[in-house]
């Protein structure tokens, strides 16, 4: 309880300090503009981004059988996380003078290659799972019934 109290006290202090300093420097921090962004961030995340991923997940349940779906979902999660970082880079590419060496790479192509790699690895993992499941199924059907001399009675 003491740890929780200490953490909570420090947390509230830092939080209030940050808010106070933002309002104290309102000519440069523009609290109203900042508030709009803070609200927009939650609305875009909770109202668009997450429902979209859930809709994709819903479609996947109808397209793939459970065993394959896990690997497709996994590959999509990994690819989506990479894309979150890559998309702003793709958008900003070429916006700066070349001498700055900033945003000069072909990020679209690089994202494409990374997504292919992710799906390739997921495909290999799925194939390995299929082979493993098949072997286990074969082994299960080959189990001999217990013989009389197996018993210690």
């Amino acid at each position: 309880m003491r740890t929780r109290l200490a953490l909570g006290t420090v947390g509230v202090t830092l939080l209030l300090f940050g808010v106070f300093r933002i309002f104290q420097n309102s000519d440069r921090t523009n609290p109203r503009g900042l508030a709009r962004w803070l609200i927009a961030a939650v609305v875009i995340h909770d109202g668009i981004l997450v429902p979209t991923t859930m809709a994709v997940g819903f479609v996947l349940t109808h397209l793939f059988r459970p065993r394959m779906r896990r690997y497709v979902q996994g590959a999509l999660v990994a690819s989506g996380l990479i894309a979150i970082i890559a998309v702003p880079l793709i958008d900003r590419r070429g916006s700066q003078p070349a001498v700055k060496a900033l945003e000069q790479q072909n990020y679209g192509l690089h994202l494409g290659i990374l997504v292919v790699l992710v799906f390739g690895v997921a495909g290999l993992a799925y194939t390995a799972q299929v082979v493993l499941d098949r072997r286990q199924a074969v082994n299960a059907t080959n189990v001999r019934p217990p013989a009389a001399h197996d018993s210690d009675t």
Binding site: R4, L5, L7, G8, G11, L14, L16, G18, R21, I22
Partner: peptide, 15 residues
């Protein structure tokens, strides 16, 4: 300053 808000609210959440 927003970093203080983020880290402070995170500590509070952990508490």
């Amino acid at each position: 300053f927003l970093a203080y808000v983020v880290f402070g609210s995170l500590l509070l959440h952990i508490a």
